[in-house]
Design a binder for these strands. Structure first.
Length: 762
DNA sequence: TGCAGAGGACTTTTT
DNA sequence: GTCCTCTGCA
């Protein structure tokens, strides 16, 4: 990973000559505003830009420009992005531009950068530098425990709600002592719970995601020398997706940029769709007031979409009152300008089945015109909508992938495995202990566990150590007695192995999961998805083996960086939520489910009122502006949702778009429509030639894995000794074939059993 | 202790 | 329709 040795750098390192004097080359191909944004290197700069105006390009070119002029050395530039994907992309671009090593540049997500800083200075807040980063599941359990201990009824005060309140305080940069109890008529005190929660986290030597930023903020505020160090170091600060920053991130940026004041923020207030998790559009509005002599540049030339699509989006977003306002125009000579300027299609259909069919028909038409599947995307409001499309895609043999939903590392079995590993690395990780001690069942029921917790508290030790001691003192009965001894023995043995350099770390993990009986537990399970879970666990050990030198590195990666977009390049139609689609673009975009209640979502309107409606509208805006060439908006009068049929009116957003940009067709089969059913009932077979018809995608693993890759293997028959390729394991040859399961001898990873869907012919 | 069955909720989601 | 949590009984 890039930037890993940032702290070790000192100023004596010589500059890379390759980097210098390339500035002219860099500015080529930029328009006037972009050029201005790149070359304005003095003082605070706010770049307000619409969708598709080349934000990332500006930010990365700017970084490269600064480096090329020698205004700063790489490690004096800080660039913050929101997703790992974005930072990866930027990193590649900068490397490309300046053709030199940029390893030492500070480029990454807020969380990743803050983790680095926090590990360096954690002792200042009595936190060990090996702290673990806990996930929302652990957070929830911790809160629940606190509530229960205080005798608070968790059915009336759900842990998730309490956690949400605490999280919002963290988003605002507020410590427990700064929070006043707003809720006077309630007997629960959020500040007190917040205080207790923080205390517990500290005891666990753990931090949550909010803490990563909040702790750093606290350290910088209380330690002048540390603050000065970073203020001096960061001569240039750049922020992407500024509209998504929350207050604590804003405060952090403000602190860090105070000395040099060379901060450049890029954002689009019309694309702020994360206020529900603490993002503050206000940060954009505040920018000019906060920084004296700040300059604002607007990028309004769009390189992505056709004029009709842009105009439709503009006319919709104009219904929002809280916006800075900018109008997008198609950039001259852009591909978008050269494309046929088709109107936005609006279709009303009878039900969700027809909706899916209609989209399938269009997809097939596009395919006939040789548009690749990867140029098409269906953007939905809620994850629940994806199912219908999946069913239809499967029955029509169209390869697709669902992006979003549960990520690999969020799956229960992966989290369990991680808890096993965490407990091995840190025996005081009580949360991990609680999660796995009775998984599989080891005879530790409520009563026995209570005894362990009590013993631990009385003797001021971790749960694990309590178990160890109680086992030694023969304090368990029945099944728990033998199981406790075995559990402790396994862990003690592996802890020693962990220190042995001759033993590979992934072997330790395999051991742990096997001998603890965790894998056996799934093997014994008769449910259809158990098999998939075991595959996932194998995948996990594979990932560790392939990518990590040690377990510690893996644990940090898993909580901060791990994403599974590795299989992103397939020839597949994408099904994504509107939130997930931000930053992406497709030639052909379908926006189904534009109905009142679903979009805008009724829940949103109930809770958030007008402001929430505006956010939904921004979401619609994001959806429309993802399209480069063709766009379809669909609304269905009936929809099967939550187990019943619901009748909905078309979304108000449709009527808010100026009709001159729309091509409205009423395909509702119950009205008198001119719609020709045969148009889509006739099934063309042109795509069957290249894809096989076996139902291999129906297997459990895919049914189970939420990021699904249903691309059909182009090879239906495998042969012994055939050379094949696997995403994680690389090249190998087939040793045995039994149905869908292949045994493959990989050149690097050795012998593995793999589902046929995972491999491709080499 | 562990399982079966009832009852309730069901927006979006990065790190 | 489905998933998760809680309760109560064997």
């Amino acid at each position: 990973m890039f930037g890993d040795n940032i702290f070790e750098l000192d100023d004596s390192i010589t500059e890379n000559k390759d980097v210098l004097n390339q500035s002219d080359k860099l500015l080529k191909g930029l328009n006037k505003e972009q050029k201005e944004a790149v070359t304005t290197t003095n003082g605070p700069l706010l770049v307000l830009s619409g969708a598709g105006t080349g934000k990332t390009k500006v930010l990365t070119t700017r970084l490269a420009y600064i480096l090329s002029l020698g205004l700063a050395r790489p490690w004096e530039c800080l660039t913050v992005t929101f997703t790992n994907k974005a930072s990866k992309e930027m990193y590649e671009r900068v490397t490309n531009y300046i053709g030199a090593e940029v390893e030492s540049v500070w480029l990454g997500t807020f969380h990743r950068i803050c983790t680095k800083i926090l590990r360096k200075h954690s002792h200042l807040i009595n936190l060990d530098s090996n702290f673990t980063i806990i996930d929302d599941d652990d957070q929830k359990r911790l809160i629940k425990k606190i509530l229960e201990e205080r005798g608070i009824d968790t059915s009336k005060n759900p842990p998730i709600a309490v956690l949400g309140r605490i999280q919002r305080y963290k988003d605002k940069g507020l410590n427990p002592e700064h929070v006043i109890n707003e809720n006077h008529h309630s007997h629960i005190s959020i500040p007190a719970l917040y205080m207790e929660y923080q205390k517990r986290l500290l005891e666990l030597n753990a931090v949550d995601f909010g803490d990563l930023i909040l702790h750093v903020l606290n350290i910088l505020k209380k330690n002048k020398d540390v603050l000065e160090f970073y203020q001096n170091r960061f001569k240039y600060i750049m922020v992407d997706e500024y509209q998504d920053t929350n207050v604590s991130q804003y405060l952090l940026l403000r602190l860090l940029s105070q000395k040099h004041k060379n901060i450049c923020c890029v954002g689009d207030d019309d694309q702020s769709i994360y206020s529900w998790r603490g993002a503050e559009v206000g940060n954009i509005l505040r920018f000019e007031k906060e920084y004296d002599n700040s300059k604002t540049i607007r990028l309004e030339r769009n390189y992505r979409s056709t004029q009709n699509i842009l105009s439709a989006a503009s006319s919709l977003i104009q219904n929002n009152s809280n916006r800075l306002g900018k109008d997008l125009i198609v950039a001259d000579n852009s591909e978008a300008q050269k494309s046929e300027n088709e109107k936005v299609n609006v279709l009303t259909v009878y039900n969700d089945i027809e909706e899916a069919s209609k989209i399938i028909t269009e997809i097939q038409n596009l395919r006939l015109k040789s548009a690749p599947y990867s140029s098409m995307a269906i953007l939905v409001r809620t994850a629940a909508q994806t199912r219908k499309f999946e069913e239809e895609f499967i029955s029509h043999n169209i390869p697709y992938k669902v992006i979003g939903g549960l990520k690999f590392y969020e799956r229960a079995e992966i989290r369990d495995a991680l808890a096993y590993i965490r407990l091995l690395v840190l025996s005081s990780d009580n949360l991990a202990f609680e999660r796995i001690i009775n998984k599989p069942t080891r005879g530790f029921g409520k009563a026995t566990l209570q005894n362990i917790y009590q013993y631990a508290n009385q003797n001021r030790m971790s749960f694990y150590n309590a178990l160890k001691e109680m086992s030694k003192l023969n304090m368990f009965k029945g099944k728990a007695k033998s199981q406790a001894a075995m559990f402790v023995e396994l862990y003690e043995e592996l802890k020693i192995a962990l220190k042995d350099d001759n033993i590979e770390h992934y072997e330790i993990i395999s051991h742990l999961l096997e001998d603890s009986g965790y894998i056996k537990m799934w093997e014994n399970e008769k449910t259809p998805d158990a098999k998939g879970r075991i595959e996932n666990l194998n995948e996990l050990t594979g990932v560790i083996r392939e990518n990590f030198e040690n377990i510690y590195g893996f644990l940090e990666h898993v909580s901060l960086v791990m994403d599974n977009d590795s299989n992103d390049n397939g020839e597949t139609v994408s099904i994504i939520t509107l939130h997930g689609a931000k930053g992406l673009e497709f030639d052909n975009v379908f926006l189904p489910g534009w109905e009142e209640g679903l979009f805008p979502h009724s829940k949103t309107l109930d809770e958030g009122g007008l402001e929430a409606l505006e956010e939904e509208r921004r979401l619609a805006y994001v959806g429309i502006t993802r399209a480069k060439k063709k766009l379809w908006i669909l609304s269905s009068s009936t929809r099967f949702l939550y187990g019943q049929y619901q009748n909905n009116n078309p979304s108000r957003f449709i009527s808010e778009i100026s009709p001159e940009f729309l091509n409205i067709k009423n395909n509702n089969s119950h009205s008198n429509s001119s719609y020709n059913y045969n148009e889509y009932q006739e099934e063309p077979n042109y795509y069957n030639k290249s894809y096989n018809n076996n139902d291999s995608w129906g297997n459990n693993f895919f049914a189970n894995k939420k990021v699904k890759e249903k691309a059909v293997s182009s090879n239906s028959t495998w042969s012994i000794n055939q050379r094949v390729f696997h995403q994680k394991f690389g090249y190998g040859r087939i040793v045995t074939i039994s149905g869908e399961k292949l045994e493959i001898s990989f050149e690097k990873a050795g012998l593995k059993k793999i589902m046929a869907n995972f491999i491709e012919a080499a």
